[in-house]
């Protein structure tokens, strides 16, 4: 799980253009300046590219915090590589 946060942080920093941004599980869109719906789409696309996963619309709609996002990524990575 730590590894996922380590990979998420540069994606957030790059996208929101903030080198000091720290990503925590409690983070929500309200906590980050500029995190509007268009940014959210870009964030999801960046994450899909970086982790080579694909989210469905209902998965994206269900997300409420960075913690839930990280958990979703973890689940999808586990499914992609069973047993590892």
């Amino acid at each position: 799980m730590d590894e996922i946060y380590e990979r998420l942080e540069p994606i957030f920093r790059e996208l929101f253009d903030d080198d000091d941004l720290i990503v925590t599980p409690q983070h929500t869109a309200k906590d980050v300046e500029g995190w509007d719906s268009m940014m959210n789409v870009q964030l999801m696309l960046s994450i899909e590219r970086a982790f080579k996963v694909h989210f469905s619309a209902s998965q994206i709609a269900s997300l409420g915090s960075v913690g839930e996002l990280a958990a979703l990524i973890q689940r999808m990575l586990d499914q992609a590589a069973p047993g590892s």
């Binding site: 268009m38 789409v41 696309l45 590219r49 989210f55 469905s56 619309a57």
Partner: peptide, 14 residues
Amino acid sequence: PSQWNLAKLPFADS
């Protein structure tokens, strides 16, 4: 289709 539904992207971001 996913990206069209999600954000009306006329073609894939890739």
